[in-house]
Amino acid sequence: MMHLSRFSEELVIWMSQASGFIDLGDAWCTGSSIMPQKKNPDIPELVRGKTGRVYGDLMALLTLMKAQPLAYNRDNQEDKESLFDAIDTVKMSLIAYAGLIPTIKVNHETMYRAAAAGFATATDLADYLVVKGLPFRDAHEVVGKTVQFAIQHDKELSGLTLPELQQFSKVIKDDVYTVLELEGSVSARNHVGGTAPRQVKAAIRRLRKKLN
């Protein structure tokens, strides 16, 4: 339940107007009795809430056992309802998620813009400098200053001109822009578990085998 609850939290945040990353199917959301425009992510909210309920069941059982001498004590009769409730709640929550996930619609542009906006390729720039011969700590410092410059001039890293970049390190050449682009950054992490699309594809294949 803890994992479903954390997943729920992300879905709720992603569906908020402030984030706007995803939308959930109409059939899996509910409206407001007063605000006509509302479409609320009640399913993940409820799963997040029901996690508290299952934790409560667990606490009830642990507390029930904590002072019992061996062997049977009538206290144990009190375990049934917590156990049944926890199992029922877990099952309902899993049914909810199996139904909800296929209705997730992704807003590609919003996600992409958000990824482009937060200097997310700064680490890639530091790694680029390391490949060019700088020690990582120095590269970290260079990129920190570059980010500060970009913030002051209201630009993204990929929006800086080559001379602007070169004032922080002479080793930067025009091949830097592939590194600063999001696609390049994602594809560069090309190892088992990395973000490169072919690695994700392979991971999906591996996980599918575990379904049986």
Binding site: A114, A117, A120, T121, V200
Partner: peptide, 8 residues
Amino acid sequence: SAQPVTFG
């Protein structure tokens, strides 16, 4: 925001 990833 930390590093770009993919939704997948």
